[in-house]
Design a binder for these strands. Sequence first.
DNA 1: ATGTCCATCACCCTAAAGGGTGATTTTGAA
DNA 2: TTCAAAATCACCCTTTAGGGTGATGGACAT
Lengths: 226, 226
Amino acid sequence: MNDQSLKTKTPVRIAIVEDDPTYVDVLRQVLARDNDLEVERTFLNSVEFLAAVPRLEVELIFLDIRMPKISGLECLPEIRQFLPDARVIMLTLHDDDDYVLRSFLAGADGYLLKDSAPRKILEAAQYCLAGGAPMSPSVARKVIEQLDQLKPGSHETDTRDRELEIKRLLSVREFEVLQHLADGKTYGEIAALLHVSVDTIKTHIRHIYDKLKVRNRTEAVSRMLR
Amino acid sequence: MNDQSLKTKTPVRIAIVEDDPTYVDVLRQVLARDNDLEVERTFLNSVEFLAAVPRLEVELIFLDIRMPKISGLECLPEIRQFLPDARVIMLTLHDDDDYVLRSFLAGADGYLLKDSAPRKILEAAQYCLAGGAPMSPSVARKVIEQLDQLKPGSHETDTRDRELEIKRLLSVREFEVLQHLADGKTYGEIAALLHVSVDTIKTHIRHIYDKLKVRNRTEAVSRMLR
DNA sequence: ATGTCCATCACCCTAAAGGGTGATTTTGAA
DNA sequence: TTCAAAATCACCCTTTAGGGTGATGGACAT
């Protein structure tokens, strides 16, 4: 008579994955107002979270999208693998990023702006647990705007087109360096090939990373080639 | 000096297209509470509405989805042709039909359940005019559920072949690691994603290098992608 | 049963990468 | 002419990558 009869009284277990400790506290306090909700674990970075996921037992997860190293978006497949029935609400500062649609495609259940009123946060949790997909009208707008990009076969961007696009972003010298990067050359090798110092190459590469918004050579090369 | 300066004080003109006269009245009364909104025209069937559309001047349209003869869905292209900037909120009795996604693809801006509270109706109008896409969490859920059906994923055949060739050379685990490598992930990040130790990943990667006859990750990725 | 992958983990060490800051010269566009 | 990139170089520091070697348990085939 215990499991069933107690079930309605068992609070919903919650995990928070958010690299801003301040906002973690905000969420904690807001969620504490609802006695049916209990924040069981919090993680300040995605790596810690991923390590714990296989043994995690929660029904609801608040997941920050933008985090260092591994984004919330990349955590979603892992969550779906180990916690297929858990609800996931994505946290974001702005609604103007292009993560919105991809989050939902990856299995998110809701979308919450970090500056939402406490009431909205609690509503989001409740709607989500009730099977809805809470999101602000502005987020919903992003979704339906990005909808069109999905249906036509417009993503057949040729490799040459990508190269041209990157060529526009980079200076000629930088593009030259990038091509050597794609061959797996080291700083020193590229420096030798271009008859300049290693530090010059390092500077070029830093600029390439800035312009392409990547963190390392592999991402840069991947960006150009696929 | 009139059009521009008066614009902020001019009420938003609204059209209602709804075959249930009772609900038209409900809408009328609710919308009348907001002095910035003015119901200019109402249509009890879609044929009348379509006839009037070319000469219609409204900023917001409440459009019933299920109507005899011509559905609201079928009206959307016409609206978009003559009133490209007007906002359209779809009206529906249930959120369980498959019109939801199709409505948004056809250019709807919001989705309102007919049993919504008056406050929700006014909110929907306001959100919509502010550029958002109001919809209930249950409707949003429908949208994201139907998302998957939209994405038919056809990649490039060239890349496929290369991938298959490399897949034959590597073990499944190694290939898995290689894919993360191509995303620019570090040892630690891949380890976290695959729930194994960093040393294990290092070993896999060394094996990958051996098998592909490359000396670093960039060459490996480049090998797979081009 | 024996050998061979496969997947896992550990420890050691060196080389390379990457982030921050700052500086100089050239060059082209406004 | 003046301002803004672009291209060059330097020094500091931390993190990551990569090479070598070795070990264990499981799966699978001969």
